[in-house]
Design a protein around this nucleic acid. Structure first.
Lengths: 142, 142
DNA sequence: CTGCTTGCAAAACTTTTGCAGACGG
DNA sequence: CCGTCTGCAAAAGTTTTGCAAGCAG
């Protein structure tokens, strides 16, 4: 995570966009509104800090953050999008029973698909690696 | 792909569900309505075979197929869900420019995350590995 | 026959859009 | 100050639901 507000502001500014209070709040909400939060989660958390922040604004900011690589859009299909502020390569373990999402570290992407750029001519910008199943807690309950 | 209608019917029956013409049509549409089709794509294709098939029915059937492992729900977030009838482990290369989705084979999942079940107590049911970027064609145009 | 499935239409959500006013640099 | 950004409200989609009628087994 980017440690301070200054660092976040710097990243936004460098990408050619303006630093606004709403953007700072949304970035904080991304990390604090629970793990892999939905847009609603983020908006709910952000509203605690600034009740006037609008849902549409949250959508727009998340779109911007995705473009500049500050967050990763998860293809979590429960009707709504989920966001992962950890943009480093990792596996998301999603429990089909309780819905919990856990991060799991594995070997590097380069080891998984060596020279993807040369072989397929594909220039990688982001990853989304989801594995669904039953987590240990839900398995034990059964 | 399951080669014949009989095989598909058998799989559905074995899962404890009824075999209906709509289910057979949707399964065929999954493979023929283009690569990684959306629900609309599938419904459109299915309608050519049976114009009376309803969109709600297609949704319900896709939900069932996902549960019994006959198809994989992709977390492709362009507003609508996408489905991949190839449930074998592979990478989906998604072009951020033109939207094209390509399949890419890589090392096995067991090599990527060895003994996931023992290590994390996670019982894997399905995979969804998406890599976004720019495809060779779009890169050449630039 | 029984009760799972379908089709229809409405409802519930999520996400996008257009615009006037606010404000960051 | 200029041009980007926000908030609002409406619009556009997508997905779900309830129910009566239809069919698979």
């Amino acid at each position: 995570m980017l440690s301070s507000r200054d660092e976040i502001a710097e990243t936004i500014r460098k990408s050619g966009h303006r630093v606004t209070p709403q953007r700072i709040i949304v970035y904080e909400a991304l990390w604090r509104a629970g793990s892999h939060p939905s847009v609603s989660d983020i908006h709910e958390y952000a509203s605690k800090i600034d009740p006037s922040i609008s849902l549409a604004t949250v959508y727009k900011i998340l779109q911007l953050f995705t473009e500049i690589g500050l967050v990763r859009e998860m293809g979590f299909r429960d009707g709504s999008a989920r966001y992962d502020p950890d943009v480093n390569f990792h596996i998301n373990l999603i429990c089909n029973e309780c819905g919990k999402i856990e991060d799991y570290d594995c070997i590097s992407f380069e080891e998984i698909a060596p020279n993807l750029n040369q072989r397929a001519g594909f220039q990688v910008q982001s990853h989304n690696f989801e594995v669904r199943g039953i987590c240990s807690q839900c398995r034990d309950i059964r």
